[in-house]
Design a binder for these strands. Structure first.
Length: 338
DNA sequence: TCTGGGGTCCTAGGACCC
DNA sequence: TCTGGGGTCCTAGGACCC
């Protein structure tokens, strides 16, 4: 639940700040153990991965034995609990691990798939959240078995082509996706921030967009990526969420360019309400730095060099030592220069 | 001090091209 | 010249996942 709600319900609760560096290190260690079992490891988040153990069985035994081995190693070497789901498909393995939590081991044998799957509520299906569950409930579909048996035309009309087909495939126990051990290719890079209090002040909003753009630019350059589409996300005090985007002629990884577009989009949007959240994202990523067209905008050219220099300084001395001057000033004491 | 943020995918309409 | 279909790209919004 949202933190605000938790605090209201439980004022005496202690809130701990996340420690992403520690989580990343633990993740790396856990993934390394997976890698000892099989090279066929597909990480799906910081704390989960799919393993295809078909090729590991001759060496390590049947999948259930491999699952025990993984749990034992993670517990003794890292002092972490972990839950393993063993099943013939990715979706079923994911479901088994969800239902095996905490610190469990749940096996769904190939000949027991529908027995396991069909009694579950529709929310168990990947892609069914609050809204879709409500749509299905109104159609009288409560269990996975109901979805499997529903006329496909009914589902298509209610959910659209892709979702309907996807859900009926999963409900039938079909999931042909193989475990993909290659590197994940990001399709967008973005960041967003929720204000502690809703903000109306244009200068605060502008500087926030600059800070977000600066972060996105640095992340793009660190990843060796650039993108053609700049998108902003604006959440108003009443929780209405708006998005605007613009596609450029050339991909960019330059924060100044990202910010210029983001600010233009925001100004054109001119939301009449206080702002709760701002986000900046760059989409349409392509590998490699931009080959710049010098003639188009000489003033913009040069920013990339400056930003690459700040990347180097930040890497040596920390992210806080360098950045746009306008981000150093208090909101009440700014000037309009960047 | 305060207390989500980082992503993916799908849909639908419009523009444009063949 | 007119009509229409199909494909692609862009944009905005929404749902969902971890």
């Amino acid at each position: 639940m949202p933190g605000v709600q938790a605090r209201r319900l439980c004022p005496q609760a202690v809130f701990l700040a996340p420690d992403m560096a520690a989580y990343a290190e633990a993740s790396r260690a856990v993934m390394a153990i997976f890698g000892d079992v099989t090279p066929m490891v597909e990480p799906i988040s910081i704390d989960e991965a799919f393993l295809d153990v078909a090729g590991a069985q001759r060496l390590l035994g049947p999948p259930t034995e491999i699952a025990r081995l993984i749990k034992r190693r993670v517990a003794t070497e890292l002092r972490l609990p972990c839950t393993v789901g063993v099943a013939p498909t990715k979706f079923l393995a994911k479901l088994a691990s969800t239902r095996g939590k905490p610190d469990g081991l749940l096996v769904v044998p190939a000949d027991g798939v529908l027995e396991f799957l069909h009694p579950l509520p529709v929310e168990a299906l990947w892609g069914v959240g609050e809204k879709t569950a409500e749509v299905l409930r109104r159609l009288g579909l409560r269990t996975v078995a109901d979805v499997a048996a529903a006329p496909s035309g009914l589902l298509r009309r209610a959910l659209g082509e892709a979702s309907a087909r996807h859900l009926q495939e999963l409900a039938a126990g079909h999931d042909p996706r193989p475990v993909f051990a290659g590197a994940r290719v990001e399709k967008s890079i973005g960041t967003e921030t929720t204000f502690a209090e809703d903000v109306a002040d244009a200068d605060t909003l502008r500087r926030t967009l600059l800070a977000l753009s600066t972060k996105v630019g640095a992340r793009l350059r660190a990843a060796g990526q650039s993108g053609r589409t700049v998108a902003i996300k604006v959440r108003l005090a009443d929780f209405t969420t708006l998005s605007r985007s613009r596609t450029l002629g050339e991909p960019t990884d330059v924060a100044r360019e990202i910010f210029a577009v983001a600010w233009a989009l925001f100004e054109a949007l001119a939301p009449g309400d206080k702002i709760r959240l701002l986000g900046v994202r760059v989409e349409g990523l392509a590998a490699g730095a931009t080959a710049h067209q010098l003639a188009l905008d000489e003033r913009t050219h040069g920013w990339r060099d400056a930003e690459v220099a700040t990347d180097a300084a930040a890497a040596r001395f920390g992210e806080r030592v360098i950045g746009p001057a306008s981000l150093l000033r208090a909101p009440a004491n700014h000037d309009k220069q960047e």
